[in-house]
């Protein structure tokens, strides 16, 4: 029920999706501005290794003959080559990890996360009293808080994601003898870890915005709330992550990546609404769903 309500809320308040898109655009511009030097050096490194040319070749082949299987095969082969190169050159490994993983992705994640508290405040207004506070007012009034929240969340998620990558690498090494199992196992590990990440921290933002809790207290209470309502929360996030991954892959393949521009903000707003609906329903609180009365006779 929470999943259905979250989808309905996303599509009734669709202009929040455009705000999210603007936030993504702004933070990517800022990241390009701040980290231009590592980006350029990484780009020239990739170009010297010949990965850029191979990627462009695979994409050109796909857009001329439309063969999805060959595209996926070439991507898999490229990533295999890349990982082999990455693991066998320890000097480049640290350089690449520092530049790409910690600097560019870290700053990008940090900037994107600073917007989340403002959105959460807006969602709280929509669901609790059917009013919508303006984005700038709710963003600015929470600005100092959201910087601290963003720092803690970025560090936590970075540790979690590196653990995920480590587990993925170990599992791949274990099943590398059976090529039949590889795609299945990769997808399974990814979905389980993403679901667990989302559901472990699901009530963190709601506790901060709705209950006005301290950041660390909210984190602890969120984990306790998740284990109290394990089945409900975990199943909701499992279904939503399966939907998100299949939707994004399907849209990318059939629109040549154009539809991702709108699919990514819709999915992230869906997760933000799902946090709130699950929090409200597991605490037994009521919320507004829709503010308009629908009548066919009054449509002009």
């Amino acid at each position: 029920m929470s999943f259905k309500n979250a989808i309905k809320l996303v599509f009734t308040k669709f202009n929040m999706v455009w705000a999210k898109l603007a936030a993504i655009l702004v933070s990517s511009l800022v990241v390009i501005g701040l980290c231009i030097d590592p980006i350029l050096s990484m780009y020239s490194w990739l170009e010297n290794m010949g990965f850029i040319a191979k990627l462009a070749q695979a994409w050109t082949a796909y857009s001329s003959n439309g063969n999805i299987v060959s595209l996926l095969e070439s991507f898999l082969r490229l990533s295999e080559q890349f990982f082999n190169y990455y693991v066998s050159h320890p000097g480049i490994l640290w350089d690449f990890t520092l530049k790409f993983g910690f600097l560019i992705l870290g700053v990008y994640k940090f900037l994107l996360t600073t917007f989340e508290l403002g959105f959460s405040k807006q969602i709280y207004g929509i669901m609790s009293d059917n009013s919508k506070p303006g984005f700038w007012v709710s963003y600015i009034s929470q600005f100092g808080k959201s910087l601290g929240y963003s720092l803690v969340k970025t560090v936590t998620f970075m540790i979690y994601d590196s653990v995920t990558l480590l587990v993925l690498y170990l599992v791949l090494k274990a099943v590398s003898g059976v090529p039949l199992l590889i795609p299945f196992v990769v997808m399974l590990v990814l979905i389980v870890f993403l679901t667990f990440r989302s559901s472990l921290f699901f009530a963190w933002l709601p506790y901060i915005t709705v209950d006005n809790r301290n950041m660390m207290v909210a984190l602890g209470k969120s984990i306790i709330l998740f284990f109290k309502n394990f089945a409900k929360v975990f199943s909701a996030y499992l279904i939503s992550w399966i939907c998100i991954i299949s939707l994004c892959v399907f849209l990318t393949v059939f629109t040549f990546g154009v539809a991702l521009i709108i699919a990514v903000p819709v999915c992230s707003m869906l997760l933000a609404f799902l946090n709130m609906t699950l929090f409200y329903s597991s605490n037994g609180m009521r919320y507004y769903m829709d503010d308009k009365i629908f009548d066919v006779n009054y449509i002009n």
Partner: peptide, 21 residues
């Protein structure tokens, strides 16, 4: 300063991208 960095960063990135492709 942020706006100057954004303008120069985006333009330099696009410049090198376009000249390499």
């Amino acid at each position: 300063i942020l706006m100057q960095l954004i303008i120069s960063g985006v333009l330099v990135l696009f410049n090198s991208l376009f000249s390499s492709l």
